[in-house]
Amino acid sequence: MKDRLIVSASPHLHKGESTTRIMWIVFLALVPAGAAGVVIFGVRALWVILWSIFFALASEAAIQAATKRKVTILDGSAAITGLLLAYNLPPGAPLWMVAAGSFFSIAIGKQVFGGLGQNIFNPALVGRVFLMASWPKYMTTFSKPLSYDAVTSATPLALLKESGVPGNISYQDLFWGLRGGCIGEACIVALLLGAAFPLFKKYISWHIPFTYIATTGVFTYIFGAKTFFGGDWMFHVLTGGLVLGAFFMATDYVTSPLTRRGQIVFGIGCGILTAVIRLWGGYPEGVSYAILMMNAATPIIDRFTRNRVYGS
């Protein structure tokens, strides 16, 4: 009985929105970034995306059937997980690896906790860090933008990590996504375009993305160069998975804090961790790790930023 009672702060209004509807709207909001990815990296990227979504749905259905629960693959959550995982993979990722990542995301990232709404960590990111730790070779081979053949190129962040300079790439190229990178993270314009509608409808709140990106910017501006206050903050904001992560992964309802204050703490935490890993860590990019670490801290953040009961 206990699990049927939902305890939350008032007001208890119903907006007439269902989880399923919101899920599919967020899914649609993600489509432009994927389309841009296919244009930039070629049709191989499309296969990775479709394969990832297919395997996420299949894993969800298989596990739910095997444990004799209702099969809920149409609620959109598994599809989003598959889509987001694909967006975090390089366009040339081998398909068996995509399948393994998709299965891991759904099985270990979500179903082990009891399914939708109960997972602690963002399932797509769980899948991604699993792949990153298991097969780093395939996870760090990126293809060159607009070349459509097997030419590989390093991401700007990887170049920065290796040689200390980001290579000559203009902000404009970064903004349009003309750079090596994961499928869904490259084209900033498409990401922002997609995020506009759910932001406007308040399906995703602005607190996390704003504080996350701002914190990363400020932190890299202060510590990003040999002297203080000389870092190329614009570069750090526009590269890597920051925009994708901040708008679409850090804002996941289930795995981020409930209150506004909590969300701000969450965003700042993500921003600092991302910047620290990028500047001093062994990996060029830290977005997935930062969000996962803050996912782990979410229950504690919720606990300490809980709205006070009126009158106490």
Partner: peptide
Amino acid sequence: FDPVRVISMPSGALL
């Protein structure tokens, strides 16, 4: 065979 390297890491042990 590309081994699942994570299994031989600490987090793989916990898993």
